[in-house]
Design a protein around this nucleic acid. Structure first.
Length: 279
DNA sequence: GTCCAGGATACTC
DNA sequence: GAGTATCATGGA
């Protein structure tokens, strides 16, 4: 066994709360340790993330991957500045309550699969399905699996996809792997106008308006995308007087919250969930 | 045992 | 375009 030097990378000037960032429903993969650090594997890069004064320490990350990780954590965006024009009392309270959220830029295929699984499902169960889905991918030194690439999924077979407890979403998972292996260009979504990107994504089975918005927001840099689920529906109705069908509400919310509305949505979403938990 | 979940789809009008 | 039944599963 080769003795390996543990590399480290420190992301400076990154005001991040790991709990708020990883437990706000945008990701189902990072694992919290007893000491509050989080283990993650992003595109095969195994790291242990730990908050430190003035930034984020990533144990196991390579120095040459600094740009990758800064992009992943959206480290160079100033959310209060981006949302200044749409600031109000509710959003301000949410941003105080949920300080340190970073809206991640996650790998496309991983995000697509996770949010296909999120449809009519709960976070605890989604996490379990994702864990089982990842068991066919290589194991890293922290004991986490990488996210499988589409080819691994196709080689594992349709019966295997049917066996991981995804229910009726298995067919959508399988077809997503087929389309990706067939050369679908997820990176192109980053440069499309929002409407076109949304239409393109919805051509995937199991991807409706809400799932498309999550994928666009969490992996394609489309920060205007505004996912409307049951929680956000209540927020828009009770706090902003926005009503109608979900599709109508989303259009109105996008018009109201603007080019970085998706970031506002994440603050509001987590804030609302917490208020419910607090009773 | 029942309820419900960060909805999508096919079908109806 | 807007309403509605149905869809598997397991955590709470």
């Amino acid at each position: 066994m080769n003795k390996r030097v543990r590399t480290m990378l420190f992301l400076e000037k990154l005001d991040i709360d790991l709990n708020n960032t990883f437990e706000c429903g945008q990701n189902f993969r990072w694992k919290r340790r007893e000491d509050g650090a989080y283990l993650g594997n992003v595109e095969g890069r195994a790291v242990c993330a730990r908050r430190q004064e003035g930034g984020l320490l990533l144990e196991g990350a390579l120095p040459e991957d600094e740009a990758f990780w800064r992009q992943y954590f959206d480290a160079d965006s100033d959310y209060p500045a981006l949302l200044r024009d749409v600031m109000d009392e509710r959003l301000g309270a949410a941003m105080t309550d949920c300080a340190g959220i970073r809206v991640l830029n996650q790998p496309f295929y991983e995000t697509l699969c996770c949010f296909i699984l999120s449809a009519n499902n709960n976070i605890a169960r989604i996490t379990g399905i994702v864990d089982r889905f990842c068991r066919i991918a290589p194991l890293d030194e922290n004991g986490l699996h990488a996210f499988p690439d589409p080819r691994m999924v196709l080689e594992a077979g349709r019966d295997w996809v049917d066996s991981i407890g995804a229910g009726y979403r298995a067919r959508s998972l399988w077809e997503a792997a087929e389309r990706m292996a067939d050369g679908f260009d997820g990176a192109a979504l980053r440069h499309m106008p929002y409407e076109e990107a949304c239409r393109t994504l919805r051509a995937f089975r199991g991807v409706g308006e809400k799932v498309a918005d999550c994928v666009l927001l969490f992996s394609c840099g489309q920060r205007a995308a505004f996912p409307v689920d049951t929680w956000v529906e209540r927020i828009l109705t009770n706090w902003y007087g926005i009503t109608g069908t979900r599709s109508q509400m989303k259009k109105l919310a996008m018009a109201h919250f603007g080019a970085y509305g998706g970031i506002a949505q994440q603050y509001l979403f987590l804030h609302a969930m917490r208020q419910k938990l607090r009773g």
